[in-house]
Amino acid sequence: MITCKDFLRELNEYLDETADVSMKKELELHVSQCPNCFVVVDTTKQTLRVFKGMEPQEIPSTVQTRLMEALQRRMNSRRATGTAPE
């Protein structure tokens, strides 16, 4: 029988479903009998869920423009000097 501490150590394997078959059984048994670990699993799942729903950061257009300008300058200077890429 595994302890809560064991369970916690394997939490990611449980959540990401990467535990092997026998460990998976142990983990499932533990979580079905331990209210604390059940809550930890549930709240960790919710934590990951809200993060997955996080808005991707838009690049401000000025930042985007400056990136393209910097790249352009670099590409042009290479063309001008005729430097072969290392």
Partner: peptide
């Protein structure tokens, strides 16, 4: 694992059902 647990901790403090810390 540590990152996930720490975030779980922070968010649970924020989002927990009030007055029901029975566990």
């Amino acid at each position: 694992l540590r990152a996930r647990l720490q975030l779980r901790e922070k968010l649970t403090r924020q989002f927990k059902r009030k007055g029901e810390n029975i566990f």
